[in-house]
Write a protein that binds this DNA or RNA. Structure first.
Lengths: 99, 99
DNA sequence: CCAATCGTTTCTATTAACAGAAACAAATTT
DNA sequence: AAATTTGTTTCTGTTAATAGAAACGATTGG
């Protein structure tokens, strides 16, 4: 299943990063947000060709999480890859002080 | 922490519901997607004043999940409430056959 | 070919979210 | 006010994701 489309539509409707961020803070637990954040950082670092053991050490996660990220990146035609290979990916790492 | 802003920005950048949906399918496990989907349905039904035990029965979730949703809805000035009270909420339930 | 490095898998233990049931509390009905 | 309904909390057990360690496998350089 199922209603993922519904959820995706909600995020799409919200449009601004600030509103989406607030919704995520309401919907997810702190633990889940951490997990999600790490998950994305793993993908980003993997895409930058950092060694898997280095990623695990730097982000303080286990190798199984890194391997899982690796599997995601092996798929072709993914949104993940498309996004990471775009210029936006690096913008996000700089973390400018927009607030 | 932390980099929730980064993740929120990614969703915001994607813009279309279809792209966001695809990214979610790549990032989350099936189990997590189910959880998330149920979580939103709970909020929606709670907001429609359905009784908590009925919600639990209909969605086949435990009361603790419903109570958690209830706590979210009790907060004021949330994106969740703003969204559920808007007209978009009902659109999403109809689930038109756009694919 | 061998050794080292790296990606991947496997194993057991841990943890957070959750199920299911019961108890408790607040509200409503009568 | 007593009984019923509904919201909330508490309890124990379960499950999926994960940590940590080790092993396995592939690749590469020597």
């Amino acid at each position: 299943m199922k209603n993922i489309k519904v959820l995706a539509k909600i995020f799409a409707d919200l449009r601004t990063g600030e509103d989406i961020r607030r919704l995520m803070l309401e919907l997810f637990t702190q633990s889940e947000l951490n997990t999600l954040s790490k998950r994305w950082q793993i993908l980003n670092l993997l895409n930058q060709k950092m060694k898997q053991r280095d990623i695990a050490a730097q982000l303080q996660v286990s190798l199984c999480k890194v391997t899982r990220g690796s599997k995601i990146l092996k798929k072709t035609n993914t949104i993940v890859k498309k996004y990471l290979d775009g210029d936006k990916a690096n913008d996000n790492n700089i973390q400018k002080n927009t607030k």
